[in-house]
Structure formats: C-alpha cells, structure tokens
Design a protein around this nucleic acid. Structure first.
Length: 505
RNA sequence: GGCGCCGUAGCCAAGCGGCCUAAGGCGACGGAUUGCAAAUCCGUUAUUCCCCGGUUCGAAUCCGGGCGGCGCCUCCA
C-alpha cells in the first residue's frame, strides 16, 4: 500500500513516507482563542484528525501537535506591524456584553479584563468542542496541545538564533523583523516570491509602515510595546512575539528535530503564515526543509457563500450542535461526518440538507453496529487490513484521502446483513477508528450531546400511543405521534409496541 | 496585476487514457410493511461527463481555446 498526499509545496500528489520509519511527526495550526471556534475552523482541525487517524490505521505511530494561539495579537498585525485593536481586548468587550445578557454561565469567567482568563475561557470551549467532535489530540491535552503564552522563551531563543544567523534584524523602530531577502526560498510554498509580491502590491502597502523595514515583505518577530495587554521581557524590550514565530518555535521545540513530516492548516494560512514559518524554521536550523508535506484544507462555504459575520452565516460548533442553525439539535457525530465527508481540497458547502444527509449515513452506521452487536452477542473478531471492505476503505484514503471513495466502500456494506457479525463488527471497529462516528469517541461512550428534552417523556408518550391504538383511537395516537415527531423523534409503531428514537439532526 | 483551484444526474460526490452503456449518498418514483404514516427492506433513477477544437485505435480522463464559479495575495481554518 502506498500513501499519497497532495503536497502544497510541490503542487503535486506525492508518495508519503515519514522521515523516521514508523513514526510521523505532524503539526497543525490550531485555533486562536479570542472567540468560539466556528465550523470552518473545525473542518480544518478535523481534516488534521482524519490524517492522523488514517495514518494510525495503517500502522504508523503519529505524534500530532497543535498550538493554541493565546497571545493577544492585533487585529491589524501585519499591515501596520502591530496597529489596530488588541484581539484580547475586543474579546473582553464581547464577554462583558455576553455576561450582561446572561449568555456566559456563572463562574465561567471572573474577570474578562484579564487576558489569561479570556484565553482560558475560549480554550476550554475549544477543547470541549474538539472532544465532542472526536478530535483525538484533544483527548491527549495538555500533552500535545501547546499554548503560545507558555512558549515565549522558545520563541525568543529562535529569534536570537535568527538574528545571529543574519536572518533577522532590529529595525529603526526597535521592532525585530525577519529579512525575507536573506532567505532565497521565500515564496516557494505560496508562489508569492518577492518579485511577485512586488508586482502585486497594488498600493495596498503604505510607505509609512515600510520605512523601518529593509524590504516591504519583512515581517515582525518581536515588538516591544508597553501598552500591549500581554507582554513579556525580552532582549528587544518588553513586548510580544509576532504571529508567525510561535508555530515555528513550538513545532521544532516540541519535536526536537529540524524537519517534521506533515504540517496542516487551512488554505488561507499558506500565505503569509506558512511561508513565514518555513523562512523562520529553515533560517534558524539551516535545514533545507521544515515540513516535508504541507497539507491544506480548502474553505468551507455556508449555503454557497463564504462564511462571514456580516452575512449572518457565521456558525460556531455550538450553534450547530445546540440547534441554532437547523432549529433542531444536531448530534456531534453528524457534524463530524458532515465536515469530513467531502474531499479536503474541494470547497465544501455546508448546508442544512447536507447535515440531514449526514444524519442518515451516521444512523446507518450506528444501526449497523447495533445489529451486528445483537447478532454476535458483542463478540468482535480480529480482522486484518486485507479484509475486502477495510482494504477498499484504506486504499481510497491512501489516495490523497479520498473520503467519498472510502465511504462508497462502507455505506452499501453497512446495510447488508452480515454473514459473520463478529467479523463485521471487527471491520466496523477498524473503520470507526478513522470515521469515529459510530460511536464518536474511541472510548466507549456514545458521545451523546445533551440535546434537551427528556427521553422519559418520549417513552411515556409511546406508552400512551400504545394505549390509544389498543383502543383503536387512531385520532389520538396520530396526534401523539405528531407531537413526538415535532419534538425531534423518529417514531416506530410496530407489533411489539411503540418506540421513539431521537433524530440525529 | 500576481499565484492557484474547480465545472460529472434534481442535489452532494467518486472517477487519475480502455473493466465507464460513469461508484456511493440524498432526493424522487414503484413495491413490501403499516389502520394511515415514519423508520426499515427490495427495485428504478446520467448512452453521458460546461462548450468548441485537437492528440489517440480509444478521452469525463491528455493538450489548446472559450464560457462559468471560487480562493489567496490584508487578520482569517
């Protein structure tokens, strides 16, 4: 079996082999914690989770590291090199308003003016979302998820090294800049070479901001700024690190190697963020390459449009799960499936209908598991990756994560009646180590979200339906049934009585 | 202006030169089941791959042109 991924660095599909046989070092750009993560963020995070789980299924040991950007960068960081509002202060404002309107649970955050509390508030929310959606790295927290604010010393060490090696300098404004001209490969990842950048600048870069830099594309590594809400001592004055340095420093620091295997992120990070990461990392280590494979997930659209706050289609994970998008709670497995089901390099269109489709697929897989468990008495047979269904699943994913192809192997199979239920259960379990929707976690709980309403009430209504039907009072039983459906249940009326199952979405 | 992606049935979507008279899912339709439904099960559902040329014995797949959609180049997953 050959694993192939599309590598942004070379713009082609290449065979994947880890540097060190058997072990994969993978770094993913994680969330900023100034707000709740939205579904677009999670498309990219779950994409990383998919790579990780798939590689593990093939027998590789995967070390997956992610960062949390909790340094309060500026809203206009790059343009004016640290102008604009501080994002932590913007967040503080919002939390205060939410507190007033009762949207923030009591005790969740004492003092919104403390940026560390703001960061913790949103970090906790992110981790909770990530666990609900089955992100493996979130279960390993805090071991594999690094906080930028706890790695300032590592960043400073890298900045010093860059200065020593002639890749960075202190500008006339006292800001430490990376000198892009010192790094000939700048632009290799994104195609934004210095020549291209110049011709494409189009008057967007104001001369005033550029006066202190050697080259307009030079970017900030450290800025001394006493007024910044979060600041640390440094050889270049008390201040804060640039946006790009954290990922370079943390990735190399955590893994302790010069070259990692895979680096992931959203497509928007290709430039400037990842371009700058390469310049910093290679500049400081002298290695030819920082990450051998760069994998980027494309953006998610909502009902055909780019997600944005102004369009009102900006959905957080919570919005979806708690029913604020569809008017009905959505099971986390359904959201996970929805965000995972289409190819990562295609723009996926998040729609209510898509969510509904996903609910059907997840239900099929969950029902199939239940059917197999009943038939096998819970026995799970060991199966090898050569089992036809599993092989087809793995082969499809090996081909640059062809999820549609992988699902095409699983879905039809999952509504057959298996001749060997224990074996089927074994296959499903293996497949589920990647899909993680039936059930959602690798632990054994079903990952059921609190969806409001009580299943006891539903059971009581079922009983009433049975009574009404026994009395041939169909008008009443129909009314009760509609009531249950309205409440979000699938109602099954059969010979053995009535049961109600909560809809997944 | 620079860099890049995409265009397959009502919708989502696979396909990587011959096994394609094109996977899989949703929907729709017909049937079983049901008091009627829902769920479930069985079956049907593109002679055709945006358009026009070209290469080839052979193209949805390669090349050229056109039309259409989208992303990045500025904080952004």
């Amino acid at each position: 079996m050959t694993i192939r991924f599309y590598n942004t660095l070379t713009s082609q599909v290449e065979e994947f082999q880890p540097v060190e046989a058997g072990t994969v070092r993978m770094y993913s750009c994680g969330p900023t914690v100034y707000d709740f993560a939205h579904i677009g963020n999670f498309r990219s995070f779950l994409f990383a989770d998919l790579i990780r789980r798939f590689l593990e299924l093939t027998g590789l040991d995967v070390q997956h590291v992610m960062n949390i950007t909790d340094v309060g960068h500026m809203t206009d960081d790059a343009v004016a090199d640290g102008a604009g509002e501080d994002k932590m202060q913007v967040a503080a404002q919002r939390i205060k308003e939410d507190k007033k309107s009762g949207k923030v649970p009591d005790g969740a955050i004492e003092n919104p003016d403390d940026p560390y509390q703001v960061a913790k508030y949103y970090t906790d929310a992110f981790l909770e979302d990530a666990r609900q959606l089955g992100m493996k790295v979130a279960f390993e927290y805090p071991d594999q998820i690094l906080h930028a604010t706890e790695q300032i010393d590592v960043m400073q060490a890298m900045i010093s090294r860059l200065i020593d090696r002639g890749h960075a300098y202190v500008g006339s404004d006292g800001v430490v800049y990376y000198s892009v001209e010192s790094f000939p490969n700048y632009g290799r990842l994104s195609g934004n070479t210095l020549d291209n950048l110049q011709s494409g600048a189009g008057g967007r870069v104001s001369d005033k901001n550029q006066a202190t830099k050697k080259h307009p594309a030079d970017f900030m590594l450290w800025k001394a700024d006493e007024s910044h809400i979060m600041k640390w001592d440094s050889p270049w004055g008390k201040g804060y690190p640039g946006w790009h340095i954290e990922c370079s420093a943390m990735a190399l620091g955590k893994f302790g190697v010069d070259t990692i295997d895979i680096h992931t992120g959203g497509e928007d990070l290709i430039f400037p963020h990842h371009e700058c990461e390469i310049a910093q990392s290679c500049g400081s280590t002298g290695a030819d390459s920082f990450a051998r494979f760069w994998l980027h997930a494309r953006f998610l659209l909502v009902e055909g449009e780019k997600m944005s706050k102004s369009k009102g289609n900006f959905y957080t994970v919570r919005d979806v799960l708690e029913g604020r998008v569809t008017g009905r709670p959505v099971h986390p497995a359904v959201l996970r499936y929805e965000l995972l089901k289409s190819h990562y390099r295609a723009n996926m269109n998040f729609t209510e209908k898509g969510l509904h489709d996903s609910a059907g697929a997840v239900k099929r897989l969950q029902d199939f598991r239940a059917k197999c468990e009943t038939a096998s008495g819970g026995e799970v047979a060991e199966v090898g990756n050569s089992h036809p269904v599993l092989k087809e699943f793995i082969d499809a994913l090996s081909d640059d994560l062809n999820m549609s192809g992988a699902l095409a192997a699983v879905l039809p199979w999952a509504h057959e009646t298996p001749s060997d239920p224990a074996e089927a259960l074994g296959v499903l379990s293996e497949i589920n180590t990647v899909l993680a929707v039936a059930p959602i976690n690798f632990d054994d709980d079903t990952g059921t979200a609190s969806t409001g309403g009580s299943d006891d009430d539903a059971a009581a209504l079922c009983r009433q339906i049975d009574e009404a039907r026994a009395a041939k009072d169909f008008a009443t039983s129909d009314k009760l049934r509609d009531q249950l459906i309205e409440a979000g249940y699938d109602v099954q009326i059969g010979r053995d009585g009535t049961t109600a199952e909560r809809k997944l979405a």
